[in-house]
Design a protein around this nucleic acid. Structure first.
Lengths: 333, 333
DNA sequence: CTGAAAGCGCTTACAG
DNA sequence: CTGAAAGCGCTTACAG
């Protein structure tokens, strides 16, 4: 149907092997042959059949990205940065959204194994991470991001979530707050648990009592959690909110309660989506260096591909404090 | 290395053909043989090699999605909905972000052709859409979404952008406004041009003069455009903003100018991202029925796969008006 | 219903 | 540097 390597070879009066060598540039080819092949390719408008090539090499030329929730703006940005970085390396991305569903994750990882992708980048939703060992067994590198996986053979890139929770809290403590609540994520997600633990430690170190409610990393969850928190403890003067979607929800709730931010309740949020400085008041946040992290993820993948036997790396990134109005320290208290 | 169909056949004492038949369930297989094969698969923990299968069938079991800007929340939602719909059909998605770069789009479409994907869903960034005819020539169906493509063989799903621009404007006209400006997208994108044309027609039909500035479909572009618009025409009492990111930018600018919304300037925006009712004031919007549209896109693909010769369809969807506070009609004027 | 055989389009030791 | 040949792991007419 479409032209194949055999037809190119015939036209250029060389063997298929020579055409293949010109195409892949591994071995050197006699210049006269090379030009003949190139011309034949040109004239026939030949493109190698990717399926055949992948089959022959037993490796697909694509990087799998498995993300737990693509509609979470933090992950959207991450996916975008990962795609950019992979593209820079001349490869493409196969994107899968698991929607925090462990079964869906397993199905996707199984597919990646079947299709022998180059490597898999995953923010796992499966606490048991059942799909991952099989990939590694097959020699397919796995780099975890945002959340660690159990298999010790995987590389990983995460934020220092514990430090972020602590840092957010300490900023408020230093501003003189003592009654600080926390709108936290789901306990089952390590990221959320770490951020909460950082908050709790900072509070206890200051001799204060932590008060938190789980907002499930969702807008509506945080809205409800904020109402609950302020209903039970109306004397709170500050909130730590541990992800970007929840910051929206908390702000909404505070607005509904007619509580002035930062005047009556100050707020610090973790994550720094594009609308952080567009809402009112602009949010003080701890920003993950998403682009750097994504580049590191992809670097780790390609390094692993080059050196399969190297010790696995777990890279931990600090978050960057961006002080805006919501924490109340910019204006005089 | 890994177990293959030959080993399964040997263990089950049948031919490779029979194993293949059990696996694909096309022809009926003697129940006794079937159980033997199934047991052998079980015992050997055999999984078919996807690469070999795709090569043999000359078709990859994956749907390509090419999107112009994944970080635009409208497209994020669309991608998510497309992925869901494709998953429902038992297929997976290969996602490519072209970042409004025609060269990148061409490279991606070339890759899709090389890899013989099942079909391609594309919101094009290439006015010349050079990659698309080749896909269709190869028998790979293309469904355009959000933006039409030139090749008449492609199916398409779009919003009625012209009607949306008109409808947004008429809502404001009916509320008594006469000096209505428009923050528009880039003229080169048809979606933007159509929405602007709808606005302009509504204005002219009412005997009024349209005043628009291009905000480039970006937050910062709209912020600058809004400043420019209100600088040049401080008597405006209402704005039509033609996409979701620009709504954020306009709101920011109005805030900077200390202009009360909707009291001094009313605002209607096209697109309805998750934060539409979380900002202050909550935005009156025209919402695209994203989930329905995505399902239609995917349906069109699978229908085309089933009936390659059917006439191409262009499905146009109406937008839904969601009246909130920013247009000023909820509160008394 | 089943099996032997051909073949999808490449790449790569191997021999020259 | 080049070519003939083998083979990657499947599926599918074809003959029985």
């Amino acid at each position: 149907m479409t032209t194949n390597i055999q037809q190119v070879a015939a036209k250029a009066r060389v063997s298929k092997a020579t055409v293949s060598r010109v195409l892949n540039g591994s071995t050197s080819v006699d210049p006269a042959y090379r030009t003949r092949v190139l011309r034949a390719i040109e004239e026939l408008d030949y493109r190698p059949n990717g399926l055949a090539r992948h089959f022959r090499l037993q490796r697909a030329d694509v990087v799998g990205v498995v993300v737990s929730d693509i509609e979470n703006p933090h992950f959207t940005s991450m996916v975008r940065a990962l795609e950019d970085a992979v593209y820079t390396h001349g490869k493409r991305v196969l994107l899968c959204n698991t929607d925090e569903n462990p079964e869906k994750e397993r199905a996707y990882l199984e597919l990646m194994a079947r299709d022998r992708v180059l490597g898999v980048l995953v923010s796992t939703s499966d606490p048991a991470d059942r799909g991952i060992p099989r990939l590694l067994d097959l020699g397919i590198p796995v780099v975890a991001f945002d959340r660690l996986v159990k298999d010790p053979r995987a590389d990983a890139v995460i934020a220092d979530n514990w430090a972020a929770g602590r840092q957010a809290t300490e900023l408020l403590l230093q501003a003189g707050h003592t009654r600080i609540g926390c709108v936290s994520g789901p306990r089952t997600v390590q990221t959320a648990a770490d951020r909460l633990a950082g908050y709790e430690l900072a509070m206890r170190s200051a001799g204060l009592r932590p008060r938190s409610v789980a907002g499930l990393f969702k807008v509506d969850g945080a809205r409800a959690a904020t109402h609950e928190l302020l209903g039970g403890a109306p004397d709170l003067t500050a909130l730590v909110v541990t992800n970007n979607l929840m910051a929206m929800g908390s702000l909404k709730a505070l607005n509904e309660l007619r509580i002035a931010v930062p005047k009556t309740v100050a707020l610090v949020a973790i994550d720094d989506p594009f609308w952080s400085d567009l809402v009112r008041p602009p949010l003080t946040t701890l920003a993950q260096p998403i682009r750097m992290m994504a580049e590191r993820v992809v670097d780790l993948l390609f390094q692993r591909l080059a050196h399969p036997e190297r010790e696995p790396t777990i890279a931990k990134f600090d978050l960057e404090l961006r002080v805006r109005e919501s924490c109340g320290t910019l204006t005089s208290r």
